[in-house]
Simulated assay, not measured.
Amino acid sequence: MIIFITLDNNYNKIWERSGKATFSSHYEKPEIVNIIKDEVHNKKIYAIGLYRAKKSSGQLLPPSLLCITKVTILSIDNIYAHDIIIDFNFIKKMPVSLNNDLEKVLIEPTPLIRYIPDSQVVKILQSGRYRRIL
């Protein structure tokens, strides 16, 4: 499962609608981005969009379930430019309590594009309080 983390001040409620998210390859792990880019042509890739007020803190906004439709990596000389463009479709809102459960898995605040094994996400979602959203 892919996790996208955005800072609420930069992208206010971006995960609550279909659209584009941008990231800087200077800060993200290129191997994860390239895997997403390659895999999106062959199958549906789902992601969870999380908000954080700061990189090191949690957020009270509910996470969103997203489906990644396209990944574009631009060639830009400025290493601080947002050169990763990820197109996504909004699927649905998830319970706010999912933030706390994911915080146990996502201990470090960066990078903002993360991969966690599907088995960990399934285990969280199969716990009693999430059975209704599966």
Rank of each mutant, 00 (worst) to 15 (best):
M1N: 15
I3H: 02
F4D: 00
F4V: 06
F4A: 03
D8H: 06
D8E: 12
N10K: 12
N10R: 15
Y11E: 11
Y11C: 08
N12D: 15
K13F: 06
K13N: 15
E16F: 07
R17P: 03
S18K: 04
G19Y: 12
A21Q: 06
T22Q: 14
F23I: 06
F23K: 07
S24Q: 02
S24E: 02
S25A: 07
E28D: 05
K29V: 06
K29R: 06
I32R: 03
V33D: 03
I35P: 00
K37V: 14
K37F: 10
E39I: 12
V40D: 12
K43C: 12
K43N: 09
I45H: 10
Y46E: 09
I48A: 12
G49W: 00
R52K: 12
K55L: 09
S56Y: 02
S57D: 14
S57M: 11
L60C: 12
L61T: 08
P63M: 09
P63T: 03
P63D: 09
P63V: 13
L65C: 05
L66F: 06
L66M: 09
C67I: 15
T69I: 07
T69L: 10
V71S: 02
I73G: 00
I73E: 05
I79S: 11
D83L: 04
I84N: 00
D87V: 01
N89Y: 13
K92V: 04
P95H: 04
P95I: 00
P95M: 03
S97T: 11
L98P: 01
N100P: 01
L102V: 03
E103L: 10
K104P: 07
K104E: 14
V105M: 11
L106H: 04
E108N: 10
T110S: 14
L112S: 11
I113C: 11
I113R: 00
Y115G: 04
I116W: 01
S119Q: 12
V122Y: 10
K123D: 04
Q126W: 07
Q126S: 09
S127N: 08
G128D: 08
R129V: 08
R129L: 13
Y130M: 03
Y130C: 04
R131K: 14
I133F: 12
